[in-house]
């Protein structure tokens, strides 16, 4: 199993947000996670990627057969975990090209590889930029600085394409995208999809799942998964909203 989360409890500043979360992702699978605002979806992403301040009070996250609860964020990234941020961060003065090159080479170093030769790097960048249809003007600019909402999201997928992770978590990458951009993002994801890697796609809209067809759909509520199903579940949610689930659960 690629990712195996068992009875995970996570607190932020002493407040429990994840309350016994379970999820297993096999290689080759795409899992969609849906659920009302504030139920802990982004918290889950932060806990998996090792963000500071997200305390695992019990349970465990196993990735590629290793418990990663205590690993630093950069080590988890180097092991192949990627997060497409719900709110990408701006880094003034650091060009996108320089940033992604630093990241690519950091990950290579972790694997004991030499830095990528400049020509190879440039070729790869060209290829991935075309894949997600982002303009060269953008990669010359500072990381996310002054990018539009859609550009920021595309830029996340561009970075994913450059880093080729084993496990990619997409936190509302579709929010704020127009239909063309949505297709581009889906294309980026689908091109990386293989028997070797897995995806956790956090979204509020079933629309995205038309393009990135999931193997499983989970509904999260109050810090845990309360319902799982196939692609059909997303359609059902779209139609009926969350009330019926909330009712079921609250009783």
């Amino acid at each position: 199993m690629l990712l195996n989360i068992k009875d995970l409890h996570v607190s932020i500043k002493g407040k429990e947000i994840l309350k016994g979360f379970n999820l297993g992702v096999n290689k080759g699978e795409v899992h969609a996670i849906m659920g009302p605002n504030g139920t802990g979806k982004s918290t889950l992403a932060a806990a998996i990627t090792g963000r500071e301040g997200y305390d695992i009070t019990s349970g465990g996250i196993e990735y590629k057969g290793k418990i990663i609860n205590d690993l630093e964020a950069d080590e988890r990234a180097n092991m192949g975990i990627f997060l497409s941020f719900q709110y990408p961060v701006e880094i003034p003065g650091v060009s996108m090209t320089n940033f992604i090159r630093t990241a690519v080479n950091a990950q290579r170093e972790y694997k004991g590889l030499k830095p990528m030769p400049a020509s190879e790097f440039l070729k790869k960048m060209e290829e991935k930029k075309n894949l997600v249809e982002i303009h060269s003007k953008l990669t010359k600019r500072s990381v996310n600085e002054g990018f539009s909402g859609g550009e920021k999201k595309k830029n996340e997928i561009f970075q994913m394409a450059m880093l080729e992770p084993s496990l990619a978590i997409l936190d509302e990458t579709d929010s704020g995208l127009d239909i063309d951009a949505l297709k581009v993002v889906a294309k980026g994801v689908n091109s990386l999809r293989s028997e070797e890697n897995g995806f956790v796609v956090i979204t509020h809209y079933q629309r995205l799942l038309d393009y990135i067809v999931p193997d499983f759909v989970h509904v999260m509520y109050d810090g845990r998964i309360v319902k799982s199903g196939g692609k059909g579940l997303a359609l059902e949610l779209e139609e009926k909203g969350y009330d019926w689930i909330k009712e079921q659960f609250d009783n």
Partner: peptide, 14 residues
């Protein structure tokens, strides 16, 4: 903190 985590999440150490 956000900037640092963003970098770290890409594999760049502190």
């Amino acid at each position: 903190e956000d900037q640092l985590f963003y970098c770290q999440q890409r594999g760049i150490d502190m």
